[in-house]
Simulated scan of single mutants.
Amino acid sequence: MATALQVTMSSLAPSSSSPSTRRRTLCCAVNSKNSAKIPIPPINPKDPFLSKLASVAATSPETLLNRPVSSDTPPYLDLFDSPKLMATPAQVERSVSYNEHRPRRPPPDLPSLLLHGRIVYIGMPLVPAVTELVIAELMYLQWMDPKEPIYIYINSTGTTRDDGETVGMETEGFAIYDALMQLKNEIHTVAVGAAIGHACLLLASGTKDKRFMMPHAKAMIQQPRVPSSGLMPASDVLIRAKEVITNRDTLVKLIAKHTGNSEESVATVMKRPFYMDSTKAKEFGVIDKILWRGQEKIMSDAASPEDWDRNAGIKVVDGI
């Protein structure tokens, strides 16, 4: 019994032979006709990596076993000489389950989707970069089809920020307005947030009966503001002030033209910031329709701000 145990332990002891000797012994065992074949599990035929590996293992297993010990190539990747197999992961299908819900191509960017739907979205103050992009999109859409309408969605504070600081010249708004007037297409304007200053002018300059406003959007017209003068001399400040007055008069004329009001009435309400909700904007002539989407009954039952003030006993002082 002790002798048998010693023989068994000696057979399990690690061999002192070199790695090359062990490799040759393993190769001989594989190449032996009497050696049993190792069963290969089912391989996904669409997986090029596993299919190639299984093919090499079945035809010439010594290729896998006689690999250099200190190879710089990751395991088995040197077997693939085809450039297609070395392509990016997006071009090589790994398995059916992995690719079942994977998109076949990257999704398009949202601005391209809007432009494909003939939608121009103005969602920033009117600075030179915004003006350049909007005019380019308008020209492109007219070139694509001069008969189809163009939809302009507006959520902009004009040439100022929401705190009143000037960020763009008044000519930015006039540039987009002039481009709109040159188009052959119908212009559908929609206010989706705020349309302030020159953005309100763009909202009102759409095609008649094609000017819309969301129920809770706001519109506001105001006088142009004098940009920061800094260390400019007094004469230059006076010149800039005169230019602002000229832009104000031009803005008054254009708003009066598109709203149907007189220039005197527009100039009067523009002495101070004149805010309009969707109902007031429709009454003033800035828009033609309100996109209620089933809220007509609710809004018709709601009292106007003037009725609320009257019922609450609040008196209006100096038109405020």
Score class of each variant (00 low, 15 high):
D277I: 01
R293W: 10
V266L: 06
V269I: 14
R293G: 09
M270Y: 06
K282T: 03
K289T: 11
S278I: 00
I287W: 10
M276E: 07
T268F: 12
G285F: 08
Y275Q: 01
M276A: 09
M270L: 09
A267H: 06
K282E: 08
I290H: 00
K282G: 04
P273N: 07
A281V: 08
I290S: 02
T279A: 14
K280A: 15
S278V: 00
S265Q: 05
I287C: 13
M276Y: 10
L291I: 14
V266Y: 03
I290Q: 02
R293I: 08
D288F: 04
S265M: 08
K280E: 15
S265H: 05
T279R: 11
G285N: 03
S265T: 08
K280I: 10
K282W: 01
F284R: 01
A267T: 09
R293D: 15
E264R: 07
Y275V: 06
D288C: 09
K271N: 14
G285W: 08
A267P: 04
V266R: 01
P273F: 05
S265I: 09
A267R: 13
M276T: 05
I287A: 13
E264Q: 14
F284C: 02
V266H: 04
V269H: 00
V266F: 03
S278M: 01
I290F: 00
K271R: 13
K271E: 15
S278A: 15
R272P: 00
E263V: 10
